[in-house]
Computed example of a mutant assay.
Amino acid sequence: MADNPANNGAEQNGMPALNALAQYCKDFSFENPNAPRSLQPQTEGPQINLQVNVNAKQLAEADFEVDLTLEGDAKIGGKDVLFAFELTYSGVFRVQNIPQDQLHPVIMIECPRLLFPFARQIVADAVRNGGFPPLYIDPIDFVALYRQRAAEVQSQPGQTNLS
């Protein structure tokens, strides 16, 4: 029996595998609400705000859809919005031969880590196309984000799911 290229033979040899089956822009918006006034030279640099969220849902026994959501804006003086964006960039991942106790961290850390460079580029291009210098989001520590979210869930009574 020949190896299936989609799983690189992981199923047959028992090796752990994480494969991206698809990735796509699920939802995206960019706003430049004060144009063309916002495109004029500013006396001070903008304050950039960014929120990151990761969610996942199981599609099949070994397949998971992971959503990486980036929401942000740039303001001058804390009130005048130069631009705002919201992006949900998603992927479908096949996970094989990962121990059950490691499955959740793999889905919630490694999958968004693989999606991030593509989402970062979409945001940078949209900000540039909106008339501003491109916004290159700094790398995100998905391990720290995972730990922070786990701590938040544990501190809330009745919560058991991180996704």
Rank of each mutant, 00 (worst) to 15 (best):
M1G: 13
A10I: 04
N13M: 02
L18F: 03
L21W: 04
Q23F: 07
Q23H: 10
Y24D: 01
C25P: 00
K26G: 12
K26V: 01
F28D: 04
F28G: 06
E31K: 12
E31W: 10
A35Y: 11
A35G: 08
R37H: 13
R37C: 03
L39A: 14
Q42P: 08
T43H: 11
E44A: 00
E44T: 05
E44L: 00
P46L: 06
Q47T: 12
I48N: 05
N49A: 11
L50P: 03
V54E: 10
V54Q: 12
N55Q: 08
N55G: 07
N55C: 00
K57W: 00
A60P: 01
D63Q: 03
D67L: 04
T69S: 14
L70Y: 14
D73Q: 07
D73A: 00
D73G: 02
A74N: 10
K75G: 09
I76N: 07
I76E: 07
G77D: 09
G77T: 06
K79N: 14
D80K: 15
L82W: 12
Y89N: 10
G91R: 02
Q96R: 01
Q96Y: 04
I98H: 04
Q100C: 07
D101Q: 15
H104E: 12
V106D: 01
I109V: 13
C111S: 00
C111V: 01
P112S: 00
L115G: 10
F116A: 11
F116N: 12
P117S: 13
P117R: 10
F118H: 15
V123W: 07
A124R: 13
D125G: 13
D125T: 15
V127C: 12
G130W: 09
F132L: 04
F132A: 02
Y136E: 11
P139E: 14
D141M: 05
D141W: 11
V143S: 11
V143I: 13
L145T: 08
R147V: 12
A150L: 05
Q156Y: 08
P157F: 14
Q159I: 00
N161E: 12
L162C: 06
